[in-house]
């Protein structure tokens, strides 16, 4: 059965917008977590290299 298109109310559109913002923030937090985690795993020696 094919999906049925349905009109969203203004309230539903606003809720969807808030959910989208929340998802974007979670994704940004994940990027930050992986970056910080990588630096923490590598340790301070990552900065100690000949220029």
């Amino acid at each position: 059965m094919s999906p049925v298109p349905q009109q969203l109310t203004p309230d539903e559109i606003q809720r969807r917008r808030k959910r989208s913002i929340a998802i974007a923030m979670v994704l940004a937090a994940l990027v930050l977590i992986f970056y910080v985690l990588t630096i923490a795993k590598l340790g301070p020696q990552v900065l100690n290299r000949p220029l």
């Binding site: 059965m1 298109p5 349905q6 969203l8 109310t9 559109i13 809720r15 969807r16």
Partner: peptide
């Protein structure tokens, strides 16, 4: 933004659960 698609799943048909709006 004014259009979306709704699909039914067997999970949504569990008893005692009221019908819901979109999200």
């Amino acid at each position: 933004p004014s259009m979306t698609t709704l699909s039914n799943s067997a999970i949504s048909d569990r008893p005692f659960v009221e019908a819901t709006t979109s999200g």
